[in-house]
Amino acid sequence: MEQGTVKWFNAEKGSGFIERENGDDVFVHFSAIQGDGFKSLDEGQAVTFDVEEGQRGPQAANVQKA
């Protein structure tokens, strides 16, 4: 798993970007967020995640709040 920080997340659209510790920013969709309840992330929040190849390039998967 990688570690990173939420660069921004739009709760209305359900997507945003995570700033990786090593590498380019990666797209995140709300469906990749693990946990119960409303799936959203806050700017500056620390997260851990896997990276998968999506239709438009790398994207975060199995996102967990650190």
Rank of each mutant, 00 (worst) to 15 (best):
D42F: 15
M1V: 12
F49W: 00
H29V: 00
G57C: 04
S31T: 12
E2P: 05
G57N: 05
G23L: 06
K7S: 03
G23V: 03
K13A: 10
F17N: 00
E21S: 12
G44H: 07
V26A: 00
D25V: 12
G37R: 01
K7P: 03
F38T: 06
K7C: 07
E19I: 14
Q3V: 13
E2A: 10
V6M: 00
S15Y: 15
Q64D: 05
Q64S: 10
G57E: 03
V51D: 02
N10M: 01
S31C: 09
P58E: 05
E19P: 01
F38M: 07
A11I: 11
G16N: 01
G4R: 01
E19Y: 12
A66G: 10
F30A: 08
F49L: 04
D25Y: 14
E43N: 13
E2D: 07
N10K: 02
K39Y: 04
V51K: 04
D36A: 12
G23K: 09
A60W: 02
I33W: 00
S31Y: 03
A32D: 10
F49D: 02
G16H: 00
G35S: 10
V6Q: 01
V63Y: 00
Q55F: 13
F9M: 02
F9P: 06
G57V: 06
F27K: 04
N10C: 13
D24F: 10
V47Y: 00
A11G: 09
D50Q: 14
E43A: 15
E43S: 14
D25P: 08
P58H: 07
I33Y: 00
V6R: 00
T48G: 04
S40W: 14
H29G: 04
D36Q: 11
A66E: 09
V51H: 00
G35H: 07
R56K: 11
A60G: 02
E2Y: 15
N22Q: 10
L41N: 01
Q55P: 15
G44T: 03
V26Q: 01
E53M: 15
F9V: 05
D50P: 02
D50H: 13
L41F: 04
D25M: 15
G4I: 00
T48N: 08
V51Q: 05
G44Y: 05
S40P: 04
A46Y: 13
G54F: 06
V63H: 03
G23W: 03
F27Y: 10
N10Q: 05
D24P: 15
N62D: 03
G14E: 02
E2G: 07
V28Q: 02
K39S: 06
V28A: 01
Q64T: 11
S15E: 12
G44V: 01
N22E: 08
Q55M: 13
W8K: 05
A60H: 02
N62W: 00
T5Y: 13
W8R: 05
S40I: 09
Q45E: 13
Q34K: 11
N22A: 09
G37A: 06
L41R: 00
M1F: 11
Q34N: 11
D25S: 10
I33T: 04
Q45D: 14
G57K: 04
E43Q: 15
A11Q: 13
E12P: 02
A11N: 11
K13E: 08
F38L: 08
E43I: 15
R56W: 15
Q59P: 02
K13P: 03
E43P: 15
E53N: 12
L41A: 02
G57A: 04
V28W: 03
S15L: 15
A46L: 14
I33G: 04
S31F: 05
E2N: 12
D50V: 14
Q64P: 02
G37C: 09
F38G: 05
V26C: 03
V28T: 02
V63T: 00
A61N: 08
G37M: 05
A32V: 06
Q59E: 08
T5G: 01
S31G: 08
V51I: 15
V51G: 00
D42L: 15
Q64G: 07
K13Y: 09
N22D: 10
D36Y: 10
G16V: 01
A32H: 06
R56N: 12
A32S: 10
S40Q: 08
V28C: 07
G23E: 06
G57L: 05
Q45A: 10
D42E: 15
F49V: 03
D50R: 12
G23Q: 07
I18K: 04
G35M: 12
Q59C: 07
G37V: 05
M1W: 09
V47N: 01
K39V: 08
M1K: 15
G23Y: 05
N62A: 04
G16Q: 01
N10L: 02
D50S: 13
F27S: 03
G4Q: 01
G57D: 01
D24M: 12
V51M: 09
Q64E: 08
K65G: 08
G54T: 14
T5K: 14
E2W: 15
Q64K: 13
G54H: 07
D24C: 13
K39G: 05
F49M: 04
E12H: 12
P58Y: 08
E12V: 12
D50G: 07
A61F: 10
Q34G: 07
Q55L: 14
R20V: 08
K39R: 11
G4K: 00
E53C: 14
V26Y: 02
F27A: 03
W8I: 05
T48S: 10
D36L: 12
V28P: 05
S40G: 08
S31I: 04
E19S: 14
D24Q: 12
N62E: 02
D42S: 15
A60T: 02
K13V: 11
F30P: 06
A61M: 11
G44K: 05
Q59R: 11
E19A: 14
V26L: 12
F17D: 02
Q59I: 12
